[in-house]
Design a protein around this nucleic acid. Structure first.
Lengths: 225, 225
DNA sequence: CCACAACGAGAGCACTGCTCTTGCTTTTCG
DNA sequence: CGAAAAGCAAGAGCAGTGCTCTCGTTGTGG
């Protein structure tokens, strides 16, 4: 009957419920969560789950997309402050806090890919939200004269960065696009290093301070002041 | 009979053989390699493998230690050059090349930890080889006057870094210890980003050039010139 | 030489992802 | 309105997994 469709709505709710339970399992079991266990938690047969997700990988893909969007929105909400530097630091701290609150979700999106899993096209859009946000902050700062002059970059990758900048952040010179990407990479590297235990026995007390030290370094490379 | 022990030698050989086959499986299946499949490849019952490794995790741990040592030795061999900057760039490129040659091995040590797997103590030593190498390069450069003066860092993490430096790289000020760690984190982040697909559709042609751009930035933050 | 420890193989348990078949319910359409 | 079609849940089943236990065999140190 209705254009919306009762069944369609029930299906959407069920899909969300499965994802919610799966996310709960993710927090304890990591990426090797069991589809059967999720089904058990929902009181349904494991085969029934396959009506909603064609495979375990597809379920993971859905969780990945949600996680990308979640961290992206968190970062966007946090990107406030008087200066571009403040906005940059604030958003990077928000990303770190998000990751600390749910390490497995971070590992799912920025950790090693699940073996035999190839990220489908649906994920690349949400995956770029954080880096695009950084690029936007940098471009705005550039247009407001908040960025120090530097000598432009050269090389083939400079052309690639110019093309990328043209597409996603028009108005920013290639050096800034590169610096923004580099800052994002440093950000993800810093969070991963902390979460995956690389800092153990080195920085155990003031990890937040050390993280900020690194992000200030990244900001300095961009030329933010 | 012999003090060395025939059986002990055979056991050591068998252990190496299992690791070799497991490494081969790692290259195709990633971290979820099957112990049974490894046993099949060796023509032995899966239960027999348990005479050599108490669990799959223990096998993975052995592979992890070997991988850490492998990338560490590769970096050490490559840390040559007239200037400290050359040595730094050379060793970071060596790490990247090592990772590109065997992405799964990189993922095993620097990717998300295998769920439910806690890194045993045996791994922390080998795990620090690369960062210690960077720290050594930086300290030598410092003592040779190859590093620009900067204002020292402050905060609680500065004390932690001072303690770490005292233990592992005596003679280097905390700021340099922090910068070295930061550079290592940027290094691992850059390699992971490239390997885990974060650069897709952005930098596809000259990834080596982009990597070097980033490492030059990291070197700049250290103060290398 | 012989008791003992190390070893390999096989069966078995509980679990996994996934498929297929069997019924039931809801929707759709002639 | 009623029949055909489509969506759905459940169960059995397959091939695979990590791991344990038992049972012969074989090499080794006292």
């Amino acid at each position: 009957m209705s254009a919306s469709g009762v069944r369609a709505r029930v299906r959407a709710e069920m899909t969300e419920e499965i994802k919610a339970v799966a996310r709960r399992h993710l927090a304890t079991d990591g990426a090797n969560l069991s589809l059967r266990a999720v089904a058990r938690d929902l009181g349904m047969a494991s085969s029934a789950v396959y009506r909603y997700f064609a495979s375990r990988d597809e379920l993971l893909t859905a969780l990945i997309i949600d996680a990308y969007n979640s961290v992206g929105e968190t970062a966007e909400r946090a990107a406030t402050g008087d200066s571009a530097l403040d906005r940059f630091l604030s958003l990077t701290h928000a990303v770190r806090d998000w990751a600390l609150a749910d390490p497995h979700q971070w590992a799912l999106i920025y950790g090693s890919p699940v073996p035999g899993y190839e990220a489908p096209q649906d994920t690349i859009g949400p995956a770029t939200r954080v880096v695009l946000l950084i690029a936007a902050v940098v471009r705005d700062a550039y247009q407001n004269g908040e960025i120090e002059d530097r000598e432009p970059i050269t090389g083939r990758y400079a052309e690639e960065l110019a093309a990328v900048g043209e597409r996603f952040t028009p108005g920013a010179p290639p050096r800034l696009v590169g610096a923004a990407m580099s800052a994002f990479i440093h950000l993800s590297g810093a969070v991963s290093a902390e979460l995956f235990g690389q800092l153990k026995n080195s920085v155990d007390e003031d990890r937040r301070g050390f993280f900020e030290f690194q992000m200030r370094g990244a900001a300095h490379l961009i030329g933010l002041r």
